[in-house]
Design a protein around this nucleic acid. Structure first.
Lengths: 188, 188
DNA sequence: GGGTACATGTAATCAGTTACATGATTTA
DNA sequence: TAAATCATGTAACTGATTACATGTACCC
């Protein structure tokens, strides 16, 4: 077994610790609307991940014969050990903010603040991003309001970062939008 | 050609627009210390990406015969068109904050704020994260101070998000640490 | 002129995604 | 009970990462 597994593996281990006997499909449901906001992967990967973890002896699966042939998954002792270990060993991995809007901003031409010159591409980008992040923020607020997350739970704490990020980025794009509509260095 | 390319493709197109004739190796240099903070991939992928873009007719390459057999890359007209189009078409993709520290926090047991109960795993995690994000913040501040980014440039604007994110997340982990007993960093 | 660090590329492997297929359940 | 929807899985393909190999310059 490799010394370090891909993140999807730890997500599966972590979820199985909380929800023993879940099927990959059910894991997918848990992921969407929670940790999937931060680190997502398609459902099919959960099947592959499950297979890999079984091969590594960290998970056992039991597949129904006939019908839907569901695979129910549970951690082995070694899987639990691996999870505990991952949770407690220091990481030196750094954060990446995967955001297509930011990437597009980065590659705008240097005169991007000059709306006349570029058909206000940045103004449009900003407007679209404000809208998209507003929707995301509302989703997060809905989650909090739903009360499904314990007040001091690690899930609630993690979501807090999502909330603060969305507030921050909305403010950022508003500033960009303002500079785009009213260029600070007008062409003349 | 697929209607939508992977992000690494747009990064290569965007960089080649600014640095025509660059080699994959040189692109790697540009990426590290700039957009790579947000969206990174290993150098070898730039070779593969270059090959793919050439196959799609978006890039032309010229490989030295003998010696290091460098490949210099440039956009074709169609490559430029593809880049312009990507820069101006609306995206519905959402942000993902890939952060291993947050993921670990998410999977802590519910009593995570109770340091007695878990060997203060969370306190350690928070301390480590405060340290790591402090270093990252310092790097960003160094970039700004270096003056290599134009004051109103899109690169500077993008970096601003990095700066605000790091400040936000450091504040977050300080709060987490405060709820735990492991000695926290002095406030800077 | 031999060692060290930098520059460059390729091949093999592994992970992730898309597209598809089928079984079960609800509801008009 | 047919149509629609939800649940579940697999296979084929594409993308990403690791490991390796070699070339060039620098410097003592």
């Amino acid at each position: 077994m490799p010394t370090t597994l891909p993140m999807s593996a730890y997500v599966v281990l972590g979820l199985l610790d909380r929800h023993p006997g879940a099927t990959p499909y059910q894991l997918d449901q848990h992921i969407r609307g929670s940790i999937g906001y931060f680190w997502s992967f398609p459902r099919s990967q959960l099947y592959e991940e499950a297979g890999r973890l079984v091969r590594h002896g960290l998970v056992v699966e039991h597949q129904e014969r006939g019908g839907r042939r569901r695979r129910t998954l549970s951690l082995t002792d070694e899987g639990r050990r691996e999870l505990r270990q991952w949770l407690t060993t220091p990481t030196q991995a750094v954060t990446e903010i995967h955001d297509e809007g930011l990437l597009r901003l980065y590659f705008q031409s240097p005169d991007f603040a000059d709306a006349e010159n570029n058909g206000d591409a940045v103004g449009r980008l900003a407007a679209e991003q404000i809208q998209a992040h507003g929707a995301r923020l509302a989703e997060y607020e809905g989650l909090v309001a739903s009360g499904r997350l314990g007040a001091g739970s690690p899930q609630r704490a993690t979501l807090e970062v999502g909330l603060r990020f969305e507030q921050m980025i909305i403010g950022f794009w508003r500033e960009i939008a303002a500079a785009s509509t009213y260029p600070s260095e007008p062409t003349r």
